[in-house]
Amino acid sequence: MKTTSLAHMPIGLVDPQKSSFWRPVRIAGAFILAILLLFGFVGPLIVSFDPLAQDYGAVLVGPGHDVHWLGTDHFGRSMLARLVHGAQLSFIMACVTALSAAIPGIALGIFAASRGGWVERGLVALSDIVLALPGLLLVLLLLAFAPGQFWPLYLGLALYLWVEFFRVARIETARVLQLPCCEATRLLGFGNVYILKRIILPALAGPMMTLFAFAMGTAIIAVSTLSAIHVGLRPPTPELGAMIVELMPYYSEAPLQVLMPAVVIFLLVLSLQLLAGRKS
């Protein structure tokens, strides 16, 4: 007689009416993000211009120039080359930051819910302490040790963003561990590793993907904001927020050059927000 494998038990945790991930809103977000990724990662293979190369014979020229398709900035640097490298830099920084926050946050959340007791209380207290500090203040404290460098930005944002992953992972894990399927799995002799792989992690996948997209959007906005107040990545690094600040004094002469990096930031964050849409 054929028996039903316990490996399929987690399927029962999913509501069939809410199991579809690729809804129209998320498809739109994925499409926008794919275009931006092609622009940022394939663009350097097509655009041969150095984003730092200056051409004082073509300063603040508008889009449609024979050589510089999207015009140049106040130093005669190609806007297309700088936007391509800026989009790539923003996405990489956001992805690395979100990963560095998600991995320890999820692991500690699962550990806290599984162990309970003083371990859980201690980790919850630690997360409350981190939440008591404004996120940008934590980044600014680290930037004081290495102004204009990447690692304090990355580390400060990761230290702040891990809390959300921890809180959601802890709550979801505690809920899943109380389900009858977990108790039945234990009675059948399966260990904690099996429960983690087959029940807990599949249940966490949806909420964590949503949080990851939100975390990437938060990181992009935070890095651009810090560059706008001159404490982020320093010029001439082609960072989108820094590009806006550099070009702002020339807004009346070249408004499109100011708007271009702002549009790229907007589209990056919009695509991530659409991908993180609710499952309603």
Results as ranks from 00 to 15, higher is better:
L204C: 12
L153G: 08
G135S: 13
S127Y: 03
L201A: 05
A158I: 11
L142M: 14
I195M: 14
L141T: 06
T173W: 13
Y160N: 14
S127H: 03
P152I: 09
W162A: 00
A125G: 05
T185A: 15
G135N: 05
L137F: 13
L179F: 08
I199S: 00
L155Y: 02
L141I: 13
F145A: 15
V168T: 15
N192E: 13
L155N: 00
L204I: 11
P134D: 03
Y154W: 15
P134V: 02
G189L: 05
F145N: 11
A146L: 08
G148V: 12
L140M: 14
R186L: 13
V163A: 02
L204K: 14
L204Y: 13
A184V: 09
N192Y: 07
R186F: 11
Y154C: 03
L155A: 11
A169W: 04
P134G: 01
V124Y: 06
E172V: 15
Y194L: 08
L157D: 01
A132P: 10
L153F: 01
C182N: 10
A132N: 06
F166R: 02
P202E: 12
V168R: 09
D128Y: 05
R175L: 10
L155H: 00
A184P: 03
P180R: 12
G148I: 14
F165A: 05
F150K: 10
R186V: 10
L137D: 00
V124H: 03
E164P: 01
L204G: 12
G156A: 02
G122H: 12
W151V: 09
L179E: 11
G122S: 15
E164L: 07
I200W: 00
G135Y: 04
L133F: 15
